[in-house]
């Protein structure tokens, strides 16, 4: 039983560490703040989630330690999108222009000019 828990812990912690490293490399490698925030979001959700999950198997049964780990995971789960959105929104309001790929036509995109007064949904 201990062996199975150890193997599960190793698996989740190593996978989480790998995703944390990839996210950090992405923050270093990607070209500007909007694309970098995707990589940071990866660290926030998957890397931390997997490492916390791996730690839960080492707590020795369901006890207060597991509850606290779940609480840490919950806080990160709910605060990370808010911080990410606030950051990107602040960058946009400050006038940063995201680097976009030219000539992409997406199906089903909501078409409305932002200056339109009567913002009526179609």
């Amino acid at each position: 039983m201990d062996l199975i828990l150890d193997i599960l812990s190793w698996f989740f912690i190593l996978l989480g560490s790998a995703f944390v490293l990839i996210g950090a490399i992405g923050v270093l490698r990607l070209p500007e703040v909007f694309t970098r925030s995707h990589a940071a979001g990866m660290v926030d959700t998957f890397g931390t989630g997997l490492i916390l999950l791996g730690l839960m198997f080492q707590a020795g049964g369901f006890n207060l330690i597991v509850v606290k780990l779940i609480m840490i995971g919950f806080f990160l789960f709910f605060t990370s999108p808010v911080a990410c959105h606030a950051l990107v929104r602040a960058a946009i309001v400050d006038g940063a222009k995201p680097m976009l790929k030219e000539g992409v036509v997406l199906e089903g995109e909501y078409k409305d000019t932002p200056k339109d007064e009567g913002d009526k949904p179609s």
């Binding site: 490492i51 916390l52 730690l55 950051l87 602040a90 960058a91 400050d94 940063a96």
Partner: peptide
């Protein structure tokens, strides 16, 4: 280059510190 890159990096370092403290406790 911009202030937002630095804030983003700071936020990520903070999240990783949470993980570091938890792992250090174990």
């Amino acid at each position: 280059p911009t202030i937002y890159d630095r804030v983003l990096a700071g936020n990520m370092i903070g999240t990783l510190t949470v993980i570091l403290i938890s792992v250090h406790g174990f």
